[in-house]
Amino acid sequence: MEILLNGAPHACLDDTTLARLLADNGYAGRRVAVEINRTIIPRSAHETTRLQPGDRVEIVHAMGGG
């Protein structure tokens, strides 16, 4: 299935969990925050949240800024 990951189309397997998506993209154990369809998914729910086709996933982190 296809989702929108940080604004770009991204292919992943059906029934992928959010935790799996994060791990597959190198974010396991990294400090990030995630929104799906503009709703924040708390870290505690990453394992149990399953992605749906067309989901708009945003992964954000802290970077230099004033």
Partner: peptide, 8 residues
């Protein structure tokens, strides 16, 4: 710090 999309 700024909050930004991470680089996939």
């Amino acid at each position: 710090v700024a909050i930004r999309r991470s680089n996939i």
